[in-house]
Design a protein around this nucleic acid. Structure first.
Lengths: 126, 126
DNA sequence: GTTGACTCTCACGTCAATGTGAGGCTTTAG
DNA sequence: CTAAAGCCTCACATTGACGTGAGAGTCAAC
């Protein structure tokens, strides 16, 4: 039982992303797997973490093009590499502000729901 | 300069929602304006607050159908009316959990961005 | 070797909120 | 009275991240 290279099905299983999504991420420049002579995609282990980051950022409302600008600058978890690229830096700040605003909107919405449920207000988590 | 009834243009101005959106909200059962004999929509002042709530809930990711279930139970700001309607209550709890999860996802995404920006972590707001 | 699981590339479908334009009434200001 | 501005109802277009199916090649096990 040779282990063999990680193909798209296994990456899908490991990340929870659908095969379709993984192909889509590649199409958008977020992943760049090797190819076997058969045309099959081959991923390395770093791809798993990359896909996880992609999903986090996507669920935060970032578009694939924004993520494409960010990803190349993240080599492993939480390492700062964005030395002095002011353009990127500004774009990130914009996205960050959007996220912060979105969090506040969500908290406002949650309070509306809480007022209906009759739950004690302002529980920070859960 | 008679004041006259509030028509769709004025409601749009007062709420920031586009005219198209206001018609859409009505189509989805979120608004039920009166009509003049001409067919023109007429709104009362409560509509302004209603539209604001709609927008908050929409931006929180609730669908119009979910909002349609919620809105009739909100008479003014933050009044609990959901006496004992377990079905609604459960639906709200589901949405609330979704929102809480979404907030956590956003915070995770913000930390990824922070690690790139090089900003001090864990600033709760702003 | 053959079957079945896996993969490939198109390429069109989906969903939700909203944009946009056509064609035609109604109201308002002058 | 008339023109401009506002409103009406269709109804098709848009955006983004996928779903889904067709048709065909590839790999693993038996």
């Amino acid at each position: 039982m040779k282990i063999g290279p990680m193909k798209i099905g296994e990456l899908s299983r490991r990340t929870g992303a659908s095969i379709r999504s993984l192909r889509y991420y590649e199409e958008q420049g977020l992943l760049a797997p090797e190819r076997l002579s058969s045309g099959y995609r081959v991923y390395d282990d770093r791809s798993v973490a990359t896909v996880h980051r992609i999903r986090v950022l996507l669920s935060a409302g970032l578009g694939t093009s924004a993520i494409a600008e960010i990803l190349p600058n993240v080599y492993d978890d939480s390492v700062v590499l964005t030395g002095r690229c002011p353009e990127l830096h500004e774009g990130l700040a914009v996205e960050r502000a959007r996220i912060t605003q979105q969090i506040e909107d969500l908290q406002a919405a949650r309070e509306i729901l809480d007022s209906l449920i009759g739950r004690p207000l302002v529980i920070t988590a859960q």
